[in-house]
């Protein structure tokens, strides 16, 4: 968590400088880092993954984050090698993974770890494959930025979730917060899936 804070601090300090940078690609990187905030689907998946990692407990959360990173990189490699590009099919996989993970969070006060890690791996793989930007100038910066932003969002949200979990001993009702949010995410993903299916 401390390393993540240092990293975020560095990015926050660098941000104003790069906002008007003349270095090609810096704008792309800056914008891409904020991708989870500007792209609702990526934000939704990052939020769910962070919440799930936190609910699994601190040690499994670290394993889950490593798994997410590894499966995300595998997804990137798979997208490059197979030529699969972001689209409705990957969106549906991401939404189903988010729905499963959110349902897992809502259903259990202490969610079983292994299925949770499995969901994290599926989400990471689909997110990695879905991160490939349009070809053109700043391709690398956009790719690295959006993927880093996605992972940072997950790290911070899982950190917030772990912090919340630590306070559950004193305030029992706190365990309801992630479970209610989990139920809301299930509802959101269900509606978005219906939108995607009806638009086809």
């Amino acid at each position: 968590m401390r390393q993540a804070l240092v990293l975020a601090g560095t990015i926050a300090m660098a941000a104003p400088a790069s906002a008007h940078s003349s270095v090609p690609g810096a704008e792309g990187l800056f914008l891409a880092l904020a991708h989870p905030l500007t792209e609702p689907l990526q934000g939704l998946v990052a939020g769910t993954a962070g919440l799930l990692a936190a609910r699994l407990g601190q040690l499994p959360a670290v394993t889950g984050l490593k798994l997410l990173l590894a499966s995300g990189l595998a997804g990137l490699v798979a997208a490059f090698t197979t030529g699969i590009r972001p689209g409705a099919g990957l969106d549906i996989v991401l939404l189903l993974a988010a729905m499963g993970a959110a349902g897992w969070i809502a259903a259990f006060r202490r969610p079983p770890v292994r299925p949770g890690l499995g969901l994290a791996a599926i989400a990471g793989l689909a997110a990695g494959m879905n991160t490939i930007p349009e070809p053109g100038e700043g391709f690398a910066a956009t790719l690295i930025g959006s993927y880093a932003g996605f992972l940072l969002a997950i790290v911070y949200l899982s950190g917030a979730g772990v912090w919340l979990a630590r306070h559950e001993a004193r305030h029992d009702w706190l365990h309801l917060v992630p479970r209610v949010i989990g139920a809301w995410i299930v509802a959101i993903t269900m509606l978005v899936l219906a939108f995607l299916v009806s638009a086809r």
Binding site: W184, M190, F195
Partner: peptide, 16 residues
């Protein structure tokens, strides 16, 4: 918790 989840299910039926 039940209401929004089932409502979304109803919403999905409406969308479809």
């Amino acid at each position: 918790i039940v209401f929004p989840v089932v409502m979304a299910l109803g919403g999905a039926l409406g969308v479809l």
